[in-house]
Simulated assay, not measured.
Amino acid sequence: MIIKYSDNPFKQILGITFYNRRNILLFTIISIFAVLQNEFGEIFMWDPIILPMVPVTILGGALAIFLGFRNNSAYDRWWEARKIWGGIVNASRTFGVMICTFSSTHFSKGKVNDDKVQAWRKELIHRHIGWLYALIMHLRKHNHWSDLERYISEKEIEAIKKLHNKPTQILHKQSERLQNAYEDQIIEDFRHMELMNVIKEFYDLQGKAERIKGTIFPYYYNYFTGVFLWLFVICLPFALASQMQWGAIPMSIAISFVFTILEKSGAVTEDPFEGRAADTPINSITRNIEIDLLEMIRSETVPAPIEPKIGRFGVKYMD
């Protein structure tokens, strides 16, 4: 997630130009060609291509409608992703507090000692952190197991590697361990039900994240937006050249750039889990949850928060 652009206006302009250099070069070539053929076409004995402004304006209006719809829908996906991970933060803290305060030797009447209760707490907290990293791995479709290996046993990891939906199976294991704790009288029935409700909430939040990841933006909006965009970009300088002469070059470049930036922002925003600078910072959010839960069980190895990164041209962002 981008936190801040550089305070240096030169770096801002340089960064925007660098990341859009191919499009800007293409706009420049089309615009120069349109103006040259308009200015010198008669010298080479051909009729210059001159397009009327009204149809190009109508095309631009239609394009603006498509871009507006797409960007609004893409932003809704991005914002929903942020709310989902905000819900995971709250539910994780609730789960950690319940694990630490609901479990006790009181209900077992001496059958369970404090060491077993502490070990059970640590196991469930660690497995939950493992679930968070497994969910990231699941959404980003990679196989980086190092974070899980810090919190889940090797035997359990080998078992879930064979399964399709790894975070789902980790939550299933959590449910089994809650049932074991109830049978061992570490928790009583009401507390068992409350903890299972939190597991259900994790399933709901995971399902919502999977829905965003698995729902492809309607193809025809992407396709026709791209077709209309480049048709507009190609036609615009030929409509401006006869009216503005050489001034058509910077004007058509500027207008084309605005429309392509709008299209690009929608394309980037519609998939918010990829780990890019503009995406939901799920690594940073997960690290904060990890710190909170480990401090609840008084762990001696608590990692530091993930610091903001400084990218090219002074952009500050969270991963």
Rank of each mutant, 00 (worst) to 15 (best):
F217T: 01
I99A: 04
E194M: 14
L240E: 07
S265M: 14
W246C: 05
L229M: 01
S146V: 08
N197T: 09
P218H: 08
A181N: 05
I30G: 00
K161R: 14
G266P: 05
L139C: 03
N180T: 14
L14S: 11
D115L: 12
I310H: 09
A209I: 01
I136K: 12
K208E: 12
L63S: 01
N20I: 10
I129P: 01
K116G: 07
P272W: 00
T301W: 09
W79Y: 10
L51Y: 15
G60C: 02
S104F: 12
I49Q: 01
G266S: 08
G207H: 10
G86N: 12
H144M: 10
G214C: 03
K173I: 15
D204V: 09
Q185E: 13
R140Y: 00
K4D: 10
G314W: 09
S252K: 00
V117W: 03
P48V: 07
F238C: 02
T260Y: 12
I310F: 09
N72Q: 11
V112E: 03
A277I: 14
L135F: 01
I310E: 12
Y221P: 03
E158P: 03
M98N: 10
N197A: 14
T280Y: 06
I43T: 12
S108Q: 02
F27E: 00
W79M: 07
